[in-house]
Each structure stands twice: as structure tokens, then as C-alpha cells.
Simulated scan of single mutants.
Amino acid sequence: MGSFRKPRPRFLSSPVLSDLPRFHAARQAALLGSNKAWNSVHKAVIKVFQGGSLQDNELYSLNENIRQLLKSELGPFITDYFQNHLLSKGLMLMEEKMRVCEGENPLESLTRIWDNFFTEILPMLQAIFYPVQGKELTIRQMALLGFRDLVLLKSNLEQVLHHLHTDVPPSITQMLLVLQIKDLQVRDQWWLIP
């Protein structure tokens, strides 16, 4: 009698050349879905910085897009993308608004911009990126630091406050407290903000 050999079992995890086109198609579909998710988040964030509002159920779909991105290979880069691209682009739009208002009282324009950022934009950014749990900085902390560095520090606030002949508006005081700007000179006084 001859020897009878059993065929070797194929494991599901072992690659087969015939499965390669299906694998590439699935990977391209996943990347296309990721690109679509990125684009929707990008458009929504810029719209918020420009003063627009989200449509009904758009926040839910944005949260779902971010959850999808977190599960993809792009997940670890979401906070970097937010900080280095979306946030910086949005804050440049705000800084540009400050430059457009150069003819008016700089304190009034900074007050308007801060109030808009703190009461409208910041909560919406936190809501959009709610699924993201930062390991180092939260979305709120990144946004506040970005506002300080890209808007406030470019506004020459120290000079404006030094020449101010009236009281500091409450919104500016709030901004300084929230951003913890220390040692800002105001008419021979030092504001020491804890």
C-alpha cells in the first residue's frame, strides 16, 4: 500500500497570493474612509473658527469620525494633527482678525476675540474632539496654549496695558487668569497671577 498524505491545513492568518487584491482593496477603502473622516473634521473645525455653527447631528457624526480615526493607523497622530494644523490654522484666522481691527482700540478687539474664543470656539473644539483622550495635554490645554502663543503674545498687550488710562476690562482679566500670564506690567504695577 502506498502512503496517503493528508493535505496541510491552511490557516486563516496565512497570506495567500489570491487574497492580495482583496487585501489591497480593503486597505484602500479604509484609507478612503479615513481621508473622508479627516476632511469632515477639518472642515468643521475651520468653520467653527470662522464663526459658523454645526448642523443638526453633525457633532455626533464628527465624534463617530474621530472614533473611527482613533481605531485606524492614523489614530496616534490625531492630537498632533489638531495642534499643528487645525488649531494653528484657526488661530491664524483669529490673529488676522486682530490685524484687520488695528484702527480701533486694540483692547476692545482683543476682548471681542477672547470672548468669542472662550465662549464659542473652545467649547466646540472640546465637543468635537471629545473621544480623544490626550496623554500629555488635553484638547482644551492645547487650544489655550495656542491662543496664548499665536494670538495674545502677538498683540502687544503689555504696551497697550502700560498706556491704559482706564481699568482693565473684565474679559482681559479673565483671559490673563485663564492663560496664567505672569509679570505683565500695568502702570507701574506688576500683575502677579497665580
Results as ranks from 00 to 15, higher is better:
residue 87 L to S: 02
residue 3 S to G: 08
residue 25 A to V: 01
residue 105 N to E: 14
residue 147 F to R: 07
residue 25 A to Q: 05
residue 185 Q to M: 11
residue 13 S to G: 10
residue 96 E to Y: 04
residue 76 P to M: 10
residue 144 L to V: 06
residue 132 V to W: 06
residue 33 G to I: 03
residue 165 H to G: 14
residue 59 L to D: 12
residue 38 W to P: 00
residue 154 K to W: 06
residue 117 F to G: 04
residue 84 N to R: 14
residue 80 D to L: 12
residue 187 R to F: 09
residue 76 P to W: 10
residue 55 Q to P: 04
residue 114 W to T: 02
residue 137 L to G: 00
residue 171 S to T: 13
residue 193 I to F: 12
residue 89 K to L: 11
residue 5 R to S: 12
residue 181 I to H: 07
residue 35 N to H: 13
residue 152 L to I: 09
residue 66 I to V: 13
residue 148 R to N: 15
residue 137 L to M: 13
residue 181 I to L: 15
residue 161 L to P: 06
residue 46 I to G: 00
residue 184 L to E: 08
residue 126 Q to Y: 00
residue 160 V to T: 13
residue 16 V to H: 14
residue 2 G to K: 13
residue 96 E to G: 10
residue 66 I to F: 05
residue 41 V to W: 01
residue 74 L to E: 14
residue 11 F to R: 14
residue 176 L to E: 10
residue 156 N to M: 07
residue 33 G to P: 02
residue 38 W to R: 15
residue 22 R to Q: 13
residue 47 K to F: 01
residue 6 K to R: 14
residue 139 I to Y: 02
residue 146 G to Q: 05
residue 152 L to Y: 01
residue 28 Q to S: 13
residue 78 I to W: 02
residue 80 D to C: 09
residue 38 W to D: 05
residue 58 E to Y: 06
residue 174 Q to H: 15
residue 27 R to C: 08
residue 18 S to T: 08
residue 165 H to V: 05
residue 125 L to D: 04
residue 184 L to H: 03
residue 123 P to N: 04
residue 72 S to N: 06
residue 57 N to P: 00
residue 115 D to M: 06
residue 151 V to P: 04
residue 151 V to K: 09
residue 89 K to H: 11
residue 176 L to A: 06
residue 71 K to F: 08
residue 46 I to M: 03
residue 157 L to K: 03
residue 123 P to I: 06
residue 65 N to T: 02
residue 181 I to S: 10
residue 187 R to M: 11
residue 8 R to A: 11
residue 22 R to V: 12
residue 48 V to P: 03
residue 59 L to N: 05
residue 65 N to G: 07
residue 161 L to Y: 06
residue 134 G to R: 09
residue 39 N to I: 04
residue 87 L to C: 01
residue 180 Q to F: 04
residue 162 H to L: 14
residue 184 L to C: 08
residue 132 V to Q: 08
residue 102 E to D: 13
residue 192 L to Q: 14
residue 141 Q to K: 11
residue 50 Q to I: 00
residue 41 V to T: 03
residue 150 L to G: 09
residue 25 A to Y: 09
residue 109 S to K: 08
residue 72 S to Q: 03
residue 72 S to M: 01
residue 37 A to Y: 01
residue 161 L to T: 06
residue 140 R to K: 15
residue 188 D to W: 04
residue 121 I to L: 02
